[in-house]
Amino acid sequence: MLFMGIDIGSRGAKGVVIEDNQIATAFIGDTGPESVKTSEMVRDNMLAKLGMDMSKITYTMATGYGRVLVPFAAENVSEISAHAKGAHWYFPSVRTILDMGGQDCKAINVNDKGQVTKFIMNDKCAGGTGRFLELIASVLGLRLEDIGQTSLESKKNFPFNTVCAVFAKSEAISLMKKGTPKSDILAGLHDAIAVRCYNLLKRVNIEKDFTITGGIAKNQGMVAKIKEKLGMEPVLAPDPQIMGALGASLFARERYMAKQNAAPAS
């Protein structure tokens, strides 16, 4: 049986199909202006890769910011529960998760069953999120994928005392004009974001194992800084960006099985 999970984030749209407890296919695209169309695009890309139509998918669930706008999903779950379930599937020993998404950051504790025991999110400003890093990349004339690596080439952190997107942007522009190397600017910004994440994590229980999920977990410069602040080596999934969609597909399987068991035998 196949189960589909769709994660419509603020920046990225992700999908996963699982079969026999394996990932059968996954897809990552951009969230467009219309969530419904975006979700259909993710679905259709995965079905095309599988060479199947929707009738083969037993149950579908959605998560993420746009989770209520996925018309073909039977149910939806919060990103927090979905990331916890996905992370637990990869690493049953994970107890602490930092989810770094397009527009917010979350710290989550998860138990040995993959259930959330504590969570905290920083729900207000863009500082330290994917959108913020995109903005900084464009100010510096770099590709988003390259800023993490560039930050690692820094000889000297430029200290930023703000990750407020507006202030950090203008500070980055004036530093560039003064000839400060891009790598130092980026190292400073990554450092400031890592401090912010650490402060968020301190409000939950920082326990081993620790993982980072979301698109920013692919940024090696960021992972290195967070590791430094926490003094803890994160375990990282092959693609941390699909964690929410994976979790949603696992929820789809669980909910479907529960319904089957609850239904009277015919």
């Binding site: 959330v116 504590k118 969570f119 905290i120 920083n122 729900d123 207000k124 400003c125 409000r203």
Partner: peptide, 16 residues
């Protein structure tokens, strides 16, 4: 589950 809703910003911690 201990659910923390809100944010920290420059002026303080605001969580319910």
């Amino acid at each position: 589950m201990e659910a923390n809703y809100g944010y920290s910003d420059g002026s303080g911690d605001y969580f319910i």
